[in-house]
Design a binder for these strands. Structure first.
Length: 358
DNA sequence: AAGCCGGGGCC
DNA sequence: GGCCCAGGCTT
Protein backbone atom coordinates (compact mmCIF):
# COMPACT_ATOMS: atom_id res chain seq x y z
CA UNK A 1 0.00 0.00 0.00
CA UNK A 2 1.25 3.50 -0.83
CA UNK A 3 2.22 5.95 1.90
CA UNK A 4 -0.85 8.12 1.23
CA UNK A 5 -3.12 5.29 2.20
CA UNK A 6 -4.15 4.30 -1.31
CA UNK A 7 -3.61 0.80 -2.57
CA UNK A 8 -4.47 1.24 -6.22
CA UNK A 9 -0.86 0.87 -7.30
CA UNK A 10 -0.70 -2.74 -6.21
CA UNK A 11 -2.78 -3.84 -9.17
CA UNK A 12 -5.68 -5.17 -7.12
CA UNK A 13 -8.38 -3.71 -9.36
CA UNK A 14 -6.69 -4.47 -12.71
CA UNK A 15 -6.12 -8.08 -11.73
CA UNK A 16 -9.69 -8.39 -10.51
CA UNK A 17 -11.02 -6.88 -13.74
CA UNK A 18 -8.96 -9.25 -15.88
CA UNK A 19 -10.31 -12.14 -13.82
CA UNK A 20 -13.84 -10.78 -14.27
CA UNK A 21 -13.48 -10.52 -18.04
CA UNK A 22 -12.44 -14.17 -18.20
CA UNK A 23 -14.39 -15.77 -15.35
CA UNK A 24 -17.02 -13.37 -13.98
CA UNK A 25 -20.76 -13.48 -14.52
CA UNK A 26 -21.93 -11.44 -17.50
CA UNK A 27 -25.41 -12.84 -18.06
CA UNK A 28 -27.29 -11.96 -14.85
CA UNK A 29 -30.76 -10.61 -15.62
CA UNK A 30 -30.15 -7.23 -13.96
CA UNK A 31 -27.13 -6.65 -16.22
CA UNK A 32 -29.32 -6.53 -19.34
CA UNK A 33 -30.35 -3.80 -19.28
CA UNK A 34 -28.41 -2.41 -16.33
CA UNK A 35 -30.92 0.32 -15.52
CA UNK A 36 -30.98 2.06 -12.13
CA UNK A 37 -34.38 0.57 -11.25
CA UNK A 38 -33.34 -2.98 -12.15
CA UNK A 39 -30.01 -2.66 -10.34
CA UNK A 40 -31.79 -1.29 -7.28
CA UNK A 41 -34.37 -4.09 -7.10
CA UNK A 42 -31.66 -6.69 -7.63
CA UNK A 43 -29.46 -5.23 -4.90
CA UNK A 44 -32.31 -5.28 -2.39
CA UNK A 45 -33.26 -8.84 -3.30
CA UNK A 46 -29.62 -9.87 -3.00
CA UNK A 47 -29.33 -8.62 0.56
CA UNK A 48 -28.78 -11.81 2.56
CA UNK A 49 -30.07 -13.87 -0.36
CA UNK A 50 -28.08 -15.79 -2.94
CA UNK A 51 -28.11 -15.16 -6.70
CA UNK A 52 -29.63 -18.53 -7.56
CA UNK A 53 -32.60 -17.87 -5.28
CA UNK A 54 -33.08 -14.30 -6.47
CA UNK A 55 -33.12 -14.80 -10.25
CA UNK A 56 -36.67 -16.25 -10.61
CA UNK A 57 -38.08 -13.71 -8.15
CA UNK A 58 -36.38 -10.91 -10.08
CA UNK A 59 -37.78 -12.07 -13.41
CA UNK A 60 -41.30 -12.36 -11.99
CA UNK A 61 -40.99 -8.94 -10.32
CA UNK A 62 -39.93 -7.22 -13.54
CA UNK A 63 -42.79 -8.84 -15.45
CA UNK A 64 -45.29 -7.44 -12.95
CA UNK A 65 -43.60 -4.12 -12.11
CA UNK A 66 -41.30 -3.15 -15.00
CA UNK A 67 -40.72 0.45 -13.89
CA UNK A 68 -40.26 2.45 -10.72
CA UNK A 69 -43.55 4.15 -11.49
CA UNK A 70 -45.34 0.80 -11.61
CA UNK A 71 -43.89 -0.14 -8.23
CA UNK A 72 -44.91 3.16 -6.66
CA UNK A 73 -48.50 2.68 -7.84
CA UNK A 74 -48.80 -0.98 -6.80
CA UNK A 75 -50.95 -2.27 -3.94
CA UNK A 76 -49.00 -3.26 -0.81
CA UNK A 77 -50.41 -6.80 -0.81
CA UNK A 78 -49.40 -7.22 -4.46
CA UNK A 79 -45.84 -6.19 -3.63
CA UNK A 80 -45.73 -8.64 -0.72
CA UNK A 81 -47.11 -11.40 -2.94
CA UNK A 82 -44.23 -10.88 -5.38
CA UNK A 83 -41.81 -11.09 -2.46
CA UNK A 84 -43.35 -14.00 -0.55
CA UNK A 85 -40.72 -16.69 0.06
CA UNK A 86 -37.71 -14.37 -0.09
CA UNK A 87 -37.83 -13.41 3.59
CA UNK A 88 -36.93 -10.14 5.32
CA UNK A 89 -40.23 -8.62 4.17
CA UNK A 90 -39.25 -5.16 5.34
CA UNK A 91 -37.11 -5.12 2.19
CA UNK A 92 -40.26 -5.25 0.05
CA UNK A 93 -42.08 -2.63 2.09
CA UNK A 94 -39.02 -0.38 1.94
CA UNK A 95 -38.77 -0.80 -1.84
CA UNK A 96 -42.40 0.20 -2.19
CA UNK A 97 -42.05 3.19 0.13
CA UNK A 98 -38.81 4.32 -1.50
CA UNK A 99 -40.40 4.18 -4.97
CA UNK A 100 -43.19 6.45 -3.76
CA UNK A 101 -40.64 8.83 -2.23
CA UNK A 102 -38.80 8.94 -5.56
CA UNK A 103 -42.04 9.89 -7.32
CA UNK A 104 -42.64 12.68 -4.80
CA UNK A 105 -39.15 14.06 -4.28
CA UNK A 106 -36.88 12.97 -7.11
CA UNK A 107 -38.92 13.33 -10.30
CA UNK A 108 -39.73 9.63 -10.50
CA UNK A 109 -36.08 8.50 -10.57
CA UNK A 110 -33.52 7.22 -8.10
CA UNK A 111 -31.25 10.09 -6.98
CA UNK A 112 -27.63 10.05 -8.19
CA UNK A 113 -26.40 11.69 -5.01
CA UNK A 114 -25.18 9.04 -2.57
CA UNK A 115 -26.47 10.88 0.49
CA UNK A 116 -29.97 11.23 -0.97
CA UNK A 117 -29.89 7.64 -2.18
CA UNK A 118 -28.79 6.25 1.18
CA UNK A 119 -31.53 8.31 2.86
CA UNK A 120 -34.19 6.15 1.15
CA UNK A 121 -35.58 3.32 3.26
CA UNK A 122 -33.78 0.02 2.77
CA UNK A 123 -30.73 1.59 1.10
CA UNK A 124 -27.62 1.84 3.26
CA UNK A 125 -24.10 2.90 2.43
CA UNK A 126 -23.13 -0.31 0.64
CA UNK A 127 -26.29 -0.70 -1.42
CA UNK A 128 -26.18 2.98 -2.39
CA UNK A 129 -22.60 2.53 -3.58
CA UNK A 130 -23.51 -0.61 -5.52
CA UNK A 131 -26.38 1.14 -7.31
CA UNK A 132 -24.39 4.23 -8.27
CA UNK A 133 -21.37 2.23 -9.40
CA UNK A 134 -23.33 -0.26 -11.48
CA UNK A 135 -26.03 2.01 -12.87
CA UNK A 136 -23.93 5.16 -13.45
CA UNK A 137 -20.29 4.11 -13.17
CA UNK A 138 -19.74 6.45 -10.22
CA UNK A 139 -16.72 5.87 -7.99
CA UNK A 140 -18.22 4.50 -4.77
CA UNK A 141 -17.12 1.49 -2.74
CA UNK A 142 -19.32 -1.35 -1.56
CA UNK A 143 -18.82 -3.54 1.51
CA UNK A 144 -21.01 -6.61 1.44
CA UNK A 145 -20.19 -10.04 2.82
CA UNK A 146 -18.18 -11.01 -0.25
CA UNK A 147 -16.03 -7.88 -0.15
CA UNK A 148 -15.50 -8.17 3.59
CA UNK A 149 -14.28 -11.73 3.19
CA UNK A 150 -12.04 -10.90 0.24
CA UNK A 151 -10.43 -7.89 1.91
CA UNK A 152 -10.08 -9.56 5.31
CA UNK A 153 -8.11 -12.34 3.65
CA UNK A 154 -6.13 -10.25 1.18
CA UNK A 155 -4.99 -7.81 3.88
CA UNK A 156 -4.98 -10.27 6.78
CA UNK A 157 -7.53 -8.26 8.78
CA UNK A 158 -8.33 -10.06 12.05
CA UNK A 159 -11.45 -9.62 14.18
CA UNK A 160 -15.15 -10.10 13.50
CA UNK A 161 -16.35 -7.60 10.83
CA UNK A 162 -19.44 -6.93 12.95
CA UNK A 163 -17.37 -4.74 15.24
CA UNK A 164 -17.09 -1.08 14.40
CA UNK A 165 -13.31 -0.89 14.24
CA UNK A 166 -12.96 -3.82 11.84
CA UNK A 167 -15.75 -2.54 9.62
CA UNK A 168 -14.20 0.91 9.38
CA UNK A 169 -10.86 -0.63 8.44
CA UNK A 170 -12.52 -2.70 5.71
CA UNK A 171 -14.31 0.36 4.30
CA UNK A 172 -10.98 2.19 4.15
CA UNK A 173 -9.40 -0.70 2.29
CA UNK A 174 -12.37 -1.03 -0.08
CA UNK A 175 -12.16 2.63 -1.05
CA UNK A 176 -8.41 2.38 -1.50
CA UNK A 177 -8.79 -0.24 -4.23
CA UNK A 178 -11.32 1.59 -6.44
CA UNK A 179 -10.19 1.90 -10.08
CA UNK A 180 -10.45 5.15 -12.02
CA UNK A 181 -12.60 3.55 -14.72
CA UNK A 182 -14.91 0.54 -15.28
CA UNK A 183 -16.60 1.02 -11.90
CA UNK A 184 -19.68 -0.98 -12.91
CA UNK A 185 -17.59 -3.96 -13.96
CA UNK A 186 -15.29 -3.63 -10.95
CA UNK A 187 -18.24 -3.67 -8.55
CA UNK A 188 -19.70 -6.75 -10.20
CA UNK A 189 -16.20 -8.26 -10.30
CA UNK A 190 -15.46 -8.03 -6.61
CA UNK A 191 -18.88 -9.44 -5.72
CA UNK A 192 -18.47 -12.30 -8.21
CA UNK A 193 -14.98 -12.91 -6.91
CA UNK A 194 -16.17 -13.35 -3.34
CA UNK A 195 -19.19 -15.40 -4.39
CA UNK A 196 -17.46 -17.83 -6.75
CA UNK A 197 -13.68 -17.87 -6.06
CA UNK A 198 -12.85 -16.42 -2.63
CA UNK A 199 -15.71 -18.41 -1.08
CA UNK A 200 -16.19 -18.95 2.61
CA UNK A 201 -15.28 -22.61 2.38
CA UNK A 202 -12.82 -24.14 -0.06
CA UNK A 203 -11.73 -20.95 -1.83
CA UNK A 204 -9.95 -21.61 -5.13
CA UNK A 205 -6.64 -20.07 -4.10
CA UNK A 206 -4.68 -21.91 -6.80
CA UNK A 207 -6.73 -20.08 -9.43
CA UNK A 208 -6.65 -16.72 -7.65
CA UNK A 209 -5.17 -13.74 -9.50
CA UNK A 210 -4.32 -12.13 -6.14
CA UNK A 211 -2.63 -15.09 -4.47
CA UNK A 212 0.91 -13.69 -4.64
CA UNK A 213 -0.04 -10.70 -2.48
CA UNK A 214 -2.69 -12.29 -0.25
CA UNK A 215 -1.72 -12.05 3.43
CA UNK A 216 -4.03 -14.88 4.49
CA UNK A 217 -2.57 -17.12 1.77
CA UNK A 218 0.99 -16.26 2.81
CA UNK A 219 0.35 -16.76 6.53
CA UNK A 220 -1.91 -19.81 6.28
CA UNK A 221 -4.94 -17.93 7.61
CA UNK A 222 -7.35 -18.45 4.70
CA UNK A 223 -9.57 -20.79 6.70
CA UNK A 224 -9.47 -18.52 9.78
CA UNK A 225 -10.51 -15.29 8.03
CA UNK A 226 -12.77 -13.51 8.23
CA UNK A 227 -13.10 -14.07 11.96
CA UNK A 228 -16.56 -15.66 12.53
CA UNK A 229 -19.21 -14.12 14.70
CA UNK A 230 -19.07 -15.30 18.31
CA UNK A 231 -21.71 -18.00 18.72
CA UNK A 232 -24.77 -18.05 20.96
CA UNK A 233 -27.57 -20.59 21.56
CA UNK A 234 -30.88 -19.66 19.88
CA UNK A 235 -34.00 -19.46 22.09
CA UNK A 236 -36.89 -21.82 21.30
CA UNK A 237 -40.47 -20.56 20.92
CA UNK A 238 -43.75 -22.24 20.05
CA UNK A 239 -47.14 -21.30 18.59
CA UNK A 240 -50.42 -22.93 17.66
CA UNK A 241 -51.66 -22.26 14.13
CA UNK A 242 -55.40 -22.72 13.59
CA UNK A 243 -56.49 -24.30 10.32
CA UNK A 244 -60.23 -23.64 10.20
CA UNK A 245 -62.18 -24.75 7.12
CA UNK A 246 -65.85 -24.13 6.50
CA UNK A 247 -68.18 -26.51 4.66
CA UNK A 248 -67.22 -24.99 1.30
CA UNK A 249 -63.51 -25.42 1.86
CA UNK A 250 -62.85 -21.79 2.65
CA UNK A 251 -60.03 -21.13 5.13
CA UNK A 252 -59.97 -18.60 7.97
CA UNK A 253 -57.06 -16.15 7.67
CA UNK A 254 -55.83 -13.38 9.92
CA UNK A 255 -53.50 -10.52 9.11
CA UNK A 256 -50.31 -10.40 11.19
CA UNK A 257 -49.68 -7.38 13.46
CA UNK A 258 -48.05 -4.37 11.75
CA UNK A 259 -44.70 -4.97 13.44
CA UNK A 260 -42.58 -7.97 14.29
CA UNK A 261 -42.06 -11.17 12.34
CA UNK A 262 -44.03 -11.38 9.05
CA UNK A 263 -45.46 -7.92 9.73
CA UNK A 264 -48.78 -7.19 8.04
CA UNK A 265 -48.86 -10.45 6.08
CA UNK A 266 -51.87 -12.74 5.76
CA UNK A 267 -51.32 -15.90 7.78
CA UNK A 268 -53.16 -18.48 9.86
CA UNK A 269 -54.73 -17.43 13.19
CA UNK A 270 -52.32 -18.10 16.03
CA UNK A 271 -52.68 -18.80 19.73
CA UNK A 272 -50.28 -19.54 22.56
CA UNK A 273 -52.30 -22.35 24.17
CA UNK A 274 -55.56 -24.31 23.89
CA UNK A 275 -57.58 -21.79 25.88
CA UNK A 276 -56.48 -18.91 23.72
CA UNK A 277 -57.14 -21.01 20.63
CA UNK A 278 -60.65 -21.77 21.84
CA UNK A 279 -61.39 -18.11 22.53
CA UNK A 280 -60.01 -17.01 19.17
CA UNK A 281 -61.97 -19.69 17.33
CA UNK A 282 -65.21 -18.72 19.06
CA UNK A 283 -64.83 -15.16 17.81
CA UNK A 284 -64.91 -16.24 14.17
CA UNK A 285 -66.97 -19.42 13.81
CA UNK A 286 -69.26 -21.96 15.32
CA UNK A 287 -67.30 -25.18 15.51
CA UNK A 288 -67.03 -28.26 17.70
CA UNK A 289 -63.82 -27.45 19.49
CA UNK A 290 -63.26 -31.06 20.51
CA UNK A 291 -63.40 -32.25 16.89
CA UNK A 292 -59.87 -31.03 16.39
CA UNK A 293 -57.48 -32.91 14.10
CA UNK A 294 -53.76 -32.74 14.69
CA UNK A 295 -51.28 -32.14 11.88
CA UNK A 296 -47.51 -32.71 11.93
CA UNK A 297 -45.55 -29.99 13.73
CA UNK A 298 -43.35 -27.73 11.65
CA UNK A 299 -39.94 -26.50 12.82
CA UNK A 300 -38.90 -23.14 11.45
CA UNK A 301 -35.55 -21.49 12.09
CA UNK A 302 -34.99 -17.74 12.21
CA UNK A 303 -31.64 -16.03 12.58
CA UNK A 304 -32.46 -15.17 16.20
CA UNK A 305 -34.80 -17.93 17.45
CA UNK A 306 -36.40 -21.24 16.55
CA UNK A 307 -40.16 -21.63 16.18
CA UNK A 308 -42.15 -24.83 16.65
CA UNK A 309 -45.49 -24.58 14.86
CA UNK A 310 -48.28 -26.91 16.00
CA UNK A 311 -51.14 -26.84 13.47
CA UNK A 312 -54.66 -27.65 14.69
CA UNK A 313 -57.34 -28.45 12.10
CA UNK A 314 -61.11 -28.09 12.22
CA UNK A 315 -63.44 -28.88 9.32
CA UNK A 316 -67.01 -27.83 8.62
CA UNK A 317 -66.85 -24.67 10.71
CA UNK A 318 -69.79 -22.27 10.34
CA UNK A 319 -68.37 -18.76 9.84
CA UNK A 320 -69.82 -15.91 11.88
CA UNK A 321 -70.17 -13.67 8.84
CA UNK A 322 -71.15 -10.60 10.82
CA UNK A 323 -67.94 -10.70 12.83
CA UNK A 324 -65.81 -11.08 9.73
CA UNK A 325 -67.50 -8.13 8.07
CA UNK A 326 -66.50 -5.98 11.04
CA UNK A 327 -62.91 -7.21 11.15
CA UNK A 328 -60.56 -5.97 8.41
CA UNK A 329 -57.83 -8.28 9.69
CA UNK A 330 -59.78 -11.50 9.16
CA UNK A 331 -61.18 -13.19 6.06
CA UNK A 332 -62.40 -16.54 4.74
CA UNK A 333 -60.43 -17.43 1.62
CA UNK A 334 -61.27 -20.06 -0.97
CA UNK A 335 -58.51 -22.23 -2.38
CA UNK A 336 -58.15 -20.28 -5.63
CA UNK A 337 -57.89 -16.99 -3.70
CA UNK A 338 -55.29 -18.48 -1.38
CA UNK A 339 -52.99 -19.24 -4.30
CA UNK A 340 -52.50 -15.52 -4.98
CA UNK A 341 -51.74 -14.55 -1.39
CA UNK A 342 -48.17 -14.16 -0.15
CA UNK A 343 -47.86 -16.35 2.94
CA UNK A 344 -44.81 -16.81 5.18
CA UNK A 345 -42.81 -19.80 3.95
CA UNK A 346 -43.74 -22.29 6.72
CA UNK A 347 -47.43 -21.34 6.36
CA UNK A 348 -47.21 -21.92 2.62
CA UNK A 349 -45.64 -25.33 3.26
CA UNK A 350 -48.40 -26.17 5.73
CA UNK A 351 -51.18 -25.15 3.34
CA UNK A 352 -49.60 -26.96 0.39
CA UNK A 353 -49.42 -30.11 2.50
CA UNK A 354 -53.06 -29.64 3.46
CA UNK A 355 -54.14 -29.28 -0.17
CA UNK A 356 -52.33 -32.50 -1.09
CA UNK A 357 -54.02 -34.53 1.65
CA UNK A 358 -57.44 -32.89 1.32
C1' DA B 1 -22.69 -2.63 20.17
C1' DA B 2 -26.36 -5.64 20.01
C1' DG B 3 -30.86 -7.14 18.64
C1' DC B 4 -34.32 -7.65 15.08
C1' DC B 5 -35.77 -9.24 10.60
C1' DG B 6 -36.70 -14.82 6.71
C1' DG B 7 -35.41 -18.13 4.04
C1' DG B 8 -32.52 -21.25 1.80
C1' DG B 9 -27.98 -23.35 0.65
C1' DC B 10 -24.53 -26.16 2.27
C1' DC B 11 -21.54 -28.99 5.00
C1' DG C 1 -28.26 -29.15 13.00
C1' DG C 2 -25.50 -25.25 12.82
C1' DC C 3 -23.55 -21.70 10.20
C1' DC C 4 -23.61 -18.30 6.76
C1' DC C 5 -25.24 -15.22 3.22
C1' DA C 6 -25.01 -9.28 -2.70
C1' DG C 7 -27.54 -5.49 4.87
C1' DG C 8 -30.31 -2.11 6.98
C1' DC C 9 -32.90 -0.37 10.78
C1' DT C 10 -33.85 0.24 15.65
C1' DT C 11 -32.68 0.63 20.35
Amino acid sequence: MAADGTVAADGFAPRLLRWFDASGRHDLPWQHPRSPYRVWVSEIMLQQTQVRVVVPYFERWMQALPTLRDLAAAEPDAVIALWAGLGYYARARNLHKAAQLCMERHGGELPRDIEALAALPGIGRSTAGAILAQAHGLRHAILDGNVKRTLARFHGVRGWPGTRAVELELWRLAEGHLPQARMADYTQAIMDFGATLCTRQNPACVLCPLQDDCVARREGLVAELPTPKPGKALPQRGTLMLVVLDGAGRLLLRRRPPSGVWAGMWSLPEAEDADAAHALLARHAEVDFDAVETLPTIEHGFSHYRLRITPLLWRNARPLEQRIAEDADARWAAADARAAIGFPAPVRRLLDGLDRTA
